[in-house]
Amino acid sequence: LTVQLGNLEWHFDNPEQALKMAEELAKRYQLKVEIDNGTLKFK
């Protein structure tokens, strides 16, 4: 699973870790998370 923020990307083997990080980033920057083809992206 990949977490993508702008041109930064983090790759996780563990989806739970990816979701946890995505939630933290979304909270911190007040963004919405969307999943696009196995990639978590922020809007």
Rank of each mutant, 00 (worst) to 15 (best):
1 L>R: 02
1 L>V: 11
1 L>K: 03
1 L>F: 14
1 L>D: 02
2 T>F: 07
2 T>M: 08
2 T>C: 12
2 T>S: 08
2 T>P: 03
2 T>Q: 04
2 T>V: 12
3 V>R: 00
3 V>W: 03
3 V>Q: 02
3 V>A: 03
3 V>N: 02
3 V>Y: 02
3 V>G: 02
4 Q>P: 03
4 Q>G: 04
4 Q>D: 03
4 Q>E: 05
4 Q>K: 12
4 Q>T: 10
5 L>F: 15
5 L>Y: 11
5 L>V: 06
6 G>E: 05
6 G>M: 05
6 G>V: 04
6 G>S: 04
6 G>R: 02
6 G>T: 03
7 N>R: 13
7 N>V: 10
7 N>A: 12
7 N>D: 12
7 N>C: 10
7 N>W: 11
8 L>G: 05
8 L>P: 00
8 L>S: 10
8 L>Q: 13
8 L>N: 11
8 L>R: 15
8 L>C: 14
9 E>I: 15
9 E>Q: 14
9 E>L: 14
9 E>P: 03
9 E>D: 04
10 W>T: 01
10 W>Q: 02
10 W>F: 08
10 W>V: 06
11 H>A: 05
11 H>N: 05
12 F>W: 04
12 F>I: 03
12 F>D: 00
12 F>H: 02
12 F>S: 01
12 F>T: 02
12 F>K: 01
12 F>N: 00
12 F>E: 01
12 F>V: 04
12 F>P: 01
13 D>C: 05
13 D>N: 12
13 D>K: 12
13 D>T: 13
13 D>A: 11
13 D>I: 10
13 D>P: 09
13 D>M: 07
14 N>H: 10
14 N>L: 08
14 N>T: 13
14 N>Q: 08
15 P>W: 15
15 P>G: 06
15 P>L: 14
15 P>T: 10
15 P>R: 12
15 P>S: 09
16 E>I: 13
16 E>Q: 12
16 E>S: 09
16 E>C: 10
17 Q>L: 13
17 Q>Y: 10
17 Q>K: 11
17 Q>H: 13
17 Q>D: 15
18 A>L: 05
18 A>S: 02
18 A>D: 01
18 A>I: 05
19 L>I: 13
19 L>Y: 14
19 L>V: 08
19 L>K: 07
19 L>N: 04
19 L>Q: 06
19 L>M: 14
19 L>A: 05
20 K>L: 11
20 K>W: 09
20 K>T: 09
20 K>F: 07
20 K>D: 06
20 K>Q: 12
21 M>T: 05
21 M>D: 02
21 M>V: 10
22 A>K: 01
22 A>C: 03
22 A>T: 03
22 A>E: 00
22 A>W: 04
22 A>G: 04
22 A>D: 00
22 A>S: 04
22 A>R: 01
23 E>D: 10
23 E>Y: 14
23 E>W: 10
23 E>S: 10
23 E>N: 13
23 E>A: 11
24 E>C: 11
24 E>S: 13
24 E>Y: 15
24 E>A: 14
24 E>F: 15
24 E>P: 00
24 E>H: 12
25 L>E: 00
25 L>K: 00
25 L>H: 03
25 L>P: 00
25 L>G: 00
25 L>N: 00
25 L>Y: 10
25 L>Q: 00
25 L>D: 00
26 A>K: 04
26 A>M: 07
26 A>Y: 07
26 A>I: 05
27 K>P: 00
27 K>D: 11
27 K>V: 09
27 K>T: 11
27 K>G: 07
27 K>C: 07
27 K>A: 13
27 K>E: 12
27 K>I: 12
28 R>V: 06
28 R>H: 08
28 R>S: 04
28 R>D: 05
28 R>P: 01
28 R>Y: 08
28 R>K: 15
28 R>C: 05
29 Y>Q: 02
29 Y>A: 02
29 Y>T: 03
29 Y>K: 01
29 Y>G: 02
29 Y>D: 01
29 Y>F: 13
29 Y>C: 11
29 Y>R: 00
30 Q>I: 04
30 Q>D: 13
30 Q>H: 15
30 Q>C: 09
30 Q>K: 13
30 Q>R: 06
31 L>M: 10
31 L>K: 01
31 L>G: 03
31 L>R: 00
31 L>E: 01
31 L>A: 03
31 L>N: 01
31 L>T: 03
31 L>S: 02
31 L>D: 02
32 K>H: 11
32 K>N: 08
32 K>D: 06
32 K>C: 05
33 V>Q: 02
33 V>N: 00
33 V>C: 05
33 V>A: 05
33 V>G: 02
33 V>Y: 15
33 V>I: 15
34 E>I: 15
34 E>N: 05
34 E>A: 05
34 E>V: 15
34 E>L: 12
34 E>K: 04
34 E>G: 02
35 I>E: 08
35 I>K: 06
35 I>P: 03
35 I>C: 08
35 I>V: 12
35 I>L: 14
35 I>F: 14
36 D>C: 07
36 D>Q: 13
36 D>I: 14
36 D>T: 12
36 D>Y: 11
36 D>A: 12
36 D>K: 09
37 N>A: 09
37 N>S: 07
37 N>Q: 10
37 N>H: 10
37 N>D: 09
37 N>K: 08
37 N>F: 04
37 N>R: 07
37 N>V: 04
38 G>H: 09
38 G>D: 08
38 G>L: 06
38 G>Q: 08
38 G>C: 05
38 G>F: 06
38 G>M: 06
39 T>Y: 14
39 T>N: 06
39 T>Q: 07
39 T>R: 09
39 T>A: 06
40 L>K: 00
40 L>V: 15
40 L>G: 01
40 L>D: 01
41 K>D: 02
41 K>A: 04
41 K>L: 08
41 K>E: 03
41 K>Q: 07
41 K>M: 08
41 K>G: 04
42 F>H: 02
42 F>S: 00
42 F>P: 01
42 F>T: 02
42 F>V: 14
43 K>T: 14
43 K>C: 07
43 K>D: 06
43 K>N: 09
43 K>M: 12
43 K>I: 15
